[in-house]
Design a protein around this nucleic acid. Structure first.
Lengths: 146, 146
DNA sequence: TTGCTTGCAAAGGATTTGCAACATG
DNA sequence: CATGTTGCAAATCCTTTGCAAGCAA
């Protein structure tokens, strides 16, 4: 099984791109993070190690990471794109708390199957989907009850 | 059954807002449109009737329409918000063709029920959800086959 | 008259891009 | 060395906001 670093390196080679310290450092910081992360959060992390790094580089490398198949963009509708690991990380959707913003990865194979069928019933070949479930988590419900 | 116009007017009164020609005209143009529409598209339509109208007004009235419960925002992930009718228009999700952008409204009550259960299994009270199915429609598949 | 509304232009926030200096292979 | 790559700042894109003039009630 290839490591994420190898996959990234192979992607760079295939595309005739170069391995630079910035790229390695940003990939590294992204991989260390378990939760999804925004470009700005990643920039903040990387800046601590190398204050001379530019935001634009973070955005550019994040795109490469996605193109290499190591990250997926997730959009919770708040105007900021988030990135999450997708290599060796099975597909899932998101449950998002409207109160505290907490997110949970969820996956229901029956829903997945039904999505495919719904698409097919309209003669669409399903390639991809996004599903966000918005609600209130137990903690937030407790708080709002007083 | 109240008309959309009545609902809008009631909303204005309740909020101590005023009924202006701009508001009426923008609501009107929105209601005439069957498909979802972007702020800019709506602006283009309204501008023809009154070239002195400002974009900002369109954005502002669109927000009122949403608040009055007459429209819903839909986000196909291309960076532009779209608005669609929701009064007397049952809930549905969207199937979007990646080739030609065509959209189909879909609704599967089993999926809806399962979404609720998934949320509950994590002690979330489901308030809302978004589901976008992205694929290739029959026409686009035909074209790409040559 | 009161204070909500408007159009305009400027501001916003996230992301992208042009560019000249700078590294990598 | 030939090209990619970087950081910077300026540019984009969509949307929001401040403001003074203009209206609805």
């Amino acid at each position: 099984m290839k490591s994420e670093r190898e996959i990234f390196d192979n992607y760079l080679i295939k595309k005739n791109l170069r391995e630079t310290p910035q790229r390695v450092m940003i990939l590294d910081a992204f991989l260390k993070r378990e939760e999804h992360i925004t470009a700005e959060q990643l920039y903040d992390i990387v800046k601590k190690r190398d204050p001379s790094i530019g935001q634009a580089t973070v955005y550019r490398v994040l795109r490469l990471i996605v193109e290499a198949g190591l990250a997926l963009e997730v959009d919770f509708g708040d105007g900021v794109m988030r990135y999450e690991h997708c290599y060796n990380h099975p597909h899932h959707d998101h449950l998002v708390c409207k109160g505290c913003g907490k997110t949970v990865e969820v996956m229901d194979s029956v829903i997945e199957e039904l999505q495919k069928r719904v698409a097919e019933s309209f003669d669409f070949e399903l390639m991809d989907h996004e599903m966000y479930l918005y609600g209130n988590c137990g903690d937030c419900r407790k708080k709002s009850r007083g």
